[in-house]
Simulated scan of single mutants.
Amino acid sequence: MTRLRAILRGLGPAIGPPQLREMLRACIGAGIGLTLCIFLVRLTRVPLTADGPDPTLLLIAPLGATTMLAFAVPSSPLAQPWSALVGNTVSALVGVAVIMTVHEPWLAMGLSVTCAMLAMMLLRATHPPAAGVALGVVLTAESVRPLGFGYAFSPVMLDTALLLLVAVGYNQLTGRVYPFRQPIEHGPRDVGEAGLRPVMKGADLTEILQRLRLDANIGAGDLARLIDAAHQQAAEHLFDGVETAQIMSHDLVTVHPRMPISQIAGLFQLHKVRTFPVVGLDGMFEGLVSEADLVRNLHKPDAKSDGVVSRLIRASRDVVEPVAADVMTRTVGTVSEITPLGVLIDLLAEGDQMAVPVLDEGRLIGIVSRADLIAALAKAHHTAVESPMNKAAASDG
């Protein structure tokens, strides 16, 4: 019974149920795209025969499958413009070459598809409907043969190009990114974002997909988004029930953006901390200033000497002393009161940020330092250790 259930599960759907909105978006777009494509092709009135346009050659049947990919799964590598345009065109060229050299239909059918697949793979333009293009050439050999290799360019390449043009516009208008194949490197985190983003280059992601034989099914850009989402989800559930509000510090020492760095240095010495939040007169958070920021300001790359006397002479020549706004870090990770503890761990584990500001609509309401986080983790560990001991004592009693 278990074996039968496993077989039935393997034969069942491999794709999750679609959302109604996405399903309607794709289906309506496919209908609009194919209709516009037919209209545009008819305007061109090509290819021409002795009696005028041949309606059977104005549109190729595999274009329906290309439409399905371009509108329903626009993020798939198989649906991208290069794959579709080059795949369909080269397959048509292969099909025409086969019908001109092979006169046995049964042999030409298999040979056309085989050679078309090989050509697509060599050109990195794998597009499943294109195999149908090659087969279609053989099945309609009597109509295609008079056109020769021109058939590959009109109607095949023309049809595909017009359809892809409509697909690009429609997907953009309905919120889908198309084409979408080039992996985007992870940039610096903007203020307000939280969570650890694994820094992986596009080449690394591509190598992983190729090693797992998944490069034809998912692109590097999609894999990067999946990794981000998985890390974010894992971080949120790492310490379920523990939120930022439970561990953040409410007694805040802040600095003003125009505060001179000499005064900030005095605050560091007085309060024995490593980071101060910078807050404007309107109460809005603007950035973080750390001890490392002050050190970098004192040891500028253009300094000719690092000696004490040289620094004093250089300081005496400076008319205006640098202020917090000149040295602070503006792009930092921030959280809210309800951010899970796991996200805080991600932010502070990166190493560049010593504390995480807690904001409410841009206003600073607290801060979580590494010391706060370590204390929270130690408390959680202590509670976890005591719980089994209490249970054991209760059972002994």
Score class of each variant (00 low, 15 high):
residue 2 T to M: 10
residue 2 T to S: 14
residue 5 R to W: 14
residue 10 G to E: 07
residue 11 L to E: 10
residue 14 A to D: 11
residue 15 I to N: 08
residue 25 R to D: 08
residue 29 G to T: 04
residue 29 G to Y: 01
residue 29 G to P: 00
residue 30 A to C: 09
residue 36 L to I: 08
residue 38 I to E: 11
residue 42 R to L: 15
residue 42 R to K: 08
residue 44 T to A: 15
residue 48 L to Q: 15
residue 50 A to G: 13
residue 56 T to F: 11
residue 57 L to M: 04
residue 62 P to V: 02
residue 65 A to P: 09
residue 71 F to I: 02
residue 74 P to E: 02
residue 86 V to H: 06
residue 91 S to V: 02
residue 93 L to H: 00
residue 98 V to R: 00
residue 102 V to C: 08
residue 108 A to P: 04
residue 111 L to R: 00
residue 118 L to K: 03
residue 120 M to T: 05
residue 126 T to Y: 13
residue 127 H to S: 06
residue 141 A to K: 04
residue 148 G to E: 04
residue 148 G to T: 05
residue 152 A to P: 00
residue 153 F to Y: 04
residue 166 V to G: 03
residue 170 Y to C: 03
residue 173 L to N: 02
residue 177 V to C: 07
residue 177 V to F: 08
residue 180 F to E: 11
residue 190 D to K: 11
residue 191 V to M: 13
residue 193 E to H: 08
residue 201 K to N: 11
residue 203 A to I: 10
residue 205 L to W: 05
residue 207 E to P: 03
residue 207 E to L: 13
residue 209 L to D: 11
residue 214 L to G: 06
residue 216 A to T: 12
residue 220 A to N: 00
residue 220 A to V: 03
residue 221 G to S: 01
residue 229 A to Q: 10
residue 234 A to M: 10
residue 236 E to K: 05
residue 236 E to P: 02
residue 241 G to T: 01
residue 242 V to R: 10
residue 242 V to H: 11
residue 243 E to Y: 14
residue 246 Q to P: 06
residue 249 S to G: 08
residue 249 S to L: 09
residue 250 H to Y: 11
residue 250 H to V: 13
residue 255 V to F: 01
residue 260 P to V: 04
residue 280 G to D: 14
residue 281 L to E: 15
residue 286 E to Q: 14
residue 286 E to Y: 13
residue 291 E to F: 07
residue 293 D to W: 01
residue 300 K to M: 13
residue 305 S to L: 10
residue 307 G to Q: 09
residue 308 V to L: 15
residue 308 V to W: 13
residue 310 S to W: 13
residue 310 S to E: 15
residue 312 L to E: 07
residue 320 V to A: 12
residue 327 V to S: 01
residue 332 V to E: 00
residue 334 T to F: 00
residue 340 P to F: 01
residue 340 P to H: 03
residue 346 D to W: 03
residue 352 D to P: 04
residue 360 D to K: 11
residue 364 L to E: 00
residue 367 I to Q: 00
residue 368 V to K: 01
residue 371 A to Q: 13
residue 371 A to S: 13
residue 372 D to V: 02
residue 380 A to P: 02
residue 381 H to R: 13
residue 382 H to V: 09
residue 385 V to M: 12
residue 392 A to K: 11
residue 395 S to N: 09
residue 395 S to Q: 09
